[in-house]
Write a protein that binds this DNA or RNA. Structure first.
Length: 557
DNA sequence: CACGGGTGCGCG
DNA sequence: AAAGCGCGCACCCGTG
């Protein structure tokens, strides 16, 4: 059963549909009664259909109401609109409408400090009927050749939207005291606003002294570069890895300065003030925020939390963190996509890269890793490029799959993930460059530029099939895990039983009562295996996950 | 002064 | 150890 919700002003329309999509009940509810309505109806486990999870769910969560399933029409629309699997549908062939323009939710005040905010439906969208859109999507899916794939994708994407709201609601348990201690240890005591911490001040003096530039601002790359060249250092950029190669007394303090300066500006006291409230980090997750279907975040840099501050992520007393990481996810995804049985064998029961070494393809684990990454990213030079022929000989099917995705992209074609997310078409300037180069009047420069852009786009599509399919696996993993966690503590509200608090592409953290931590770890492993079956059926590719039960994030691996 | 591109670096 | 995918964010600096 589905219940379609449609807000207009102070009321909400609720339309109940049976499994054939026929209306069985229709009513109008005062917006104030929505929470009670949902709470009651949730007992029947409907799939809630709404335009945008972020516009509906936070208020329900705040009122203690959790829903088990939904259709996020916004997210689903983007997938169905773009997918090659549904390309013949009315929805895909229609002119752009309100569901296409639909809003990057623009600035909402006080977004950062509350989980309770909601977005108002704006004018254009108020007229877009969720029921019509839901039917258009259902028709598009039902009519396509392999409805199972895209149906699973839409369910997983929508589950991800629920999880994102729930994770923000619960928040990542975060110790201000530990983070502050780390900052103080490295930088010195917190300075007054605008002042430089003692450690940075000291390093600045050393740098200026070593470069004989008493007013140098090392934060300015052009200025720094000139100063380095003045003392005879042949740097071409100020990147750390390049500076590391140089020999001069300035290098050590300079590298240290860059490191600490980065810590201060990205995750310093200001970040702590802005993002950690009541011992919780609540980043704004954006499901589907990346073309490949990965999540993005807005504000707080939640997906770039540096490894060396992770000790500040601390379980509450009596609770544990279950930190889980999918091992070599993308190569395993490629294994499943290509049906490469040799690579599946290499990944069976062990580290995939070690398995590649054991197969005799390469000599050491580091080589296996760099060769695999190079194959998936399109490296042509360096060690990775040199190892590719050996990889190809050992695993021809896997390598062929990414090569074909690259060739398709170079021709300007679309590629599609395992469950049906399709890559965008190249833009007008790309097409123009190709057509100029193939014209009769083209110059060598035109052709070089077109070839280079074609290869760039080929690297994008090469990686797209893997990264997008990996993102789908991760969504299925989390959705399955969420269900299992609910079973472990059926009546608990979010935050009372084990619940997801963090997601980082191929890694999750569950905050769990200590008594349920071990069973949570089992759920993590079982969900990973289930996700593998959902994507690849009986094909014997394994998806091992490490699940560590710890008190703080730094203790994991 | 606002804005956007460039640089550099954090994450997978 | 570096160059090849996807991001977000802080900062600098040139432009309008």
């Amino acid at each position: 059963m589905h219940i379609v919700l449609d807000r207009s002003g102070a009321t909400v329309g609720a339309i109940r549909l049976d499994d054939a999509g026929a209306v069985i009940d229709e009513r109008t509810i005062p917006a104030d009664d929505l929470v009670d309505f949902v709470r009651t109806a949730e007992a029947e486990s409907p799939r809630w259909v709404w335009n945008d999870t972020r516009a509906w769910y936070p208020r329900l969560l705040a009122a203690g109401v959790r829903v088990s399933r939904c259709v996020d029409l916004q997210l689903s629309h983007r997938i169905v609109r773009m997918s090659t699997l549904t390309a013949e549908s009315d929805l895909a062939r229609a002119l752009p409408g309100p569901w296409d323009t639909a809003p990057e939710l623009d600035e909402e005040p006080e977004r950062r400090h509350t989980a309770l905010f909601e977005f108002e439906v704006d004018g254009a969208e108020a007229h877009a009927s969720p029921l019509d859109e839901f039917r258009a999507q259902s028709n598009a899916v039902a009519a396509c050749a392999e409805p199972g794939r895209i149906r699973l994708l839409l369910a997983a994407e929508s589950a991800g939207a629920l999880i994102a709201s729930e994770m923000r609601f619960a928040g990542l348990p975060y110790s201000v005291a530990r983070h502050d201690a780390l900052l103080t240890g490295l930088l010195g005591p917190r300075p007054l606003a605008g002042a430089r911490p003692a450690a940075l001040e000291q390093l600045l003096l050393e740098i200026r002294d070593a470069l004989e530039s008493p007013t140098l601002n090392p934060d300015s790359p052009p200025e720094l570069l000139r100063a380095l060249q003045r003392v005879g250092l042949m740097a071409t950029s100020t990147r750390s890895w390049e500076l590391r190669e140089l020999e001069h007394t300035v290098i050590e303090p300079l590298l240290q300065y860059k490191k600490l300066s980065r810590l201060l500006t990205a995750n310093g006291w200001a970040w702590l003030d802005a993002w950690i409230v009541d011992g919780r980090f609540r980043p704004d997750y954006v499901p589907g925020g990346v073309v490949t279907g990965r999540w993005a975040t807005r504000g707080g840099g939640a997906l770039q939390l540096p490894r060396h501050v992770r000790g500040a992520v601390v379980a509450d007393p009596g609770w544990k963190l279950v930190v889980a990481d999918a091992a070599q996810l993308e190569p395993r995804i490629l294994t499943g996509l290509s049906g490469d049985t040799a690579m599946a064998e290499a990944g069976r029961g062990k580290d995939l890269y070690e398995g590649i070494v054991a197969s005799g393809a390469v000599d050491e684990r580091a080589h296996a890793k760099v060769a695999m990454l190079g194959a998936m990213y399109g490296a042509t030079t360096g060690e990775s490029g040199r190892l590719l022929p050996r990889l190809t000989r050992a695993f021809p099917r896997a390598v062929r799959l990414v090569e074909e995705a690259a060739r398709a992209g170079e021709r300007g074609e679309i590629v599609t993930s395992r469950l049906g997310r399709s890559s965008p078409k190249p833009g007008p300037s790309w097409l123009a460059a190709q057509s100029v180069a193939s014209g009769a009047e083209s110059t060598d420069a035109d052709e070089r530029r077109a070839r280079s852009q074609a290869r760039d786009w080929g690297r994008f599509t090469r990686n797209f099939v893997v990264q997008a399919s990996a993102a789908e696996w991760a969504l299925c993993w989390m959705a399955g895990l969420r269900n299992r966690l609910t079973e472990l503590a059926p009546s608990a509200r979010i935050g009372e039983g084990p619940h997801l608090v963090y997601f980082l592409h191929d890694e999750v953290i569950v905050h769990a009562p200590a008594s349920l931590a071990e069973r949570t770890a089992e759920a993590v492993v079982d969900s990973a295996a289930e996700a593998g079956r959902l994507l690849f059926g009986g094909f014997p590719v394994e998806f091992p996950v490490t699940a560590a039960v710890v008190d703080d994030y730094a203790q994991a691996k």
